[in-house]
Simulated scan of single mutants.
Amino acid sequence: MKIIDWYILKRYLATFFVMLLMFIPIGIVIDVSEKINKILAKKVPFAEVAGYYGDFTLYFANMLFPIFLFLSVIWFTSKLANNTEIIAILGSGISFMRFLRPYLIGATFISLLALVMGFFFVPKASKGFNDFRYTYLKNNAKIRESDQVYKQVNDTQTIYVGAFNYMNKSGSKFNLETYRGDKLVSKINANTITWNPKDSTYTLYGYNKRIVGDGAVNDVIVRESQKIMKLPFEPDELTPTVYVAETMTLGELNKFIEKEKRRGSSNIDSYLVVKYKKYSIPVSAFILTIIAVAVSSMKRRGGMGVNLAMGIGLAFSYVFFDKVFGTMGEKSSMSPLLAVWIPNVTFGILAIFLLRNARR
Rank of each mutant, 00 (worst) to 15 (best):
A88Q: 06
I89W: 10
L90C: 01
S95L: 02
S95G: 02
F96I: 10
M97A: 09
R98N: 12
R98C: 05
R98Q: 14
R101H: 10
Y103D: 05
I105E: 07
I105F: 14
I105G: 08
G106L: 01
A107V: 06
A107M: 06
T108Q: 05
F109A: 13
F109S: 08
F109T: 04
I110N: 00
I110Y: 01
I110Q: 00
S111H: 04
S111Y: 02
L112P: 05
L113M: 13
A114Q: 02
G118N: 14
F119H: 02
F119Q: 00
F119C: 01
F120D: 13
F121G: 01
V122R: 01
V122Q: 00
A125P: 07
S126H: 13
S126F: 09
G128P: 06
G128E: 06
F129Q: 10
N130F: 14
N130S: 15
D131I: 04
F132K: 10
F132G: 10
Y134R: 14
T135G: 03
T135L: 09
Y136Q: 09
Y136H: 14
K138M: 10
K138H: 08
N139Y: 11
N139E: 15
N139M: 12
A141W: 13
K142C: 02
I143G: 10
I143W: 07
R144E: 15
R144Q: 15
R144M: 14
E145R: 15
S146M: 14
D147I: 11
V149T: 10
Y150F: 14
Y150H: 09
Y150W: 13
K151Y: 13
Q152P: 03
Q152V: 06
V153E: 12
V153Q: 02
N154D: 15
D155F: 01
T156L: 06
T158E: 04
I159C: 01
Y160S: 02
Y160K: 00
V161N: 06
A163P: 01
A163L: 03
F164K: 00
N165F: 03
N165A: 03
Y166I: 00
Y166A: 12
M167N: 11
N168D: 15
N168G: 02
N168M: 00
K169M: 11
S170G: 11
G171I: 05
G171T: 09
S172V: 14
S172R: 15
K173N: 14
K173G: 06
F174R: 12
N175F: 13
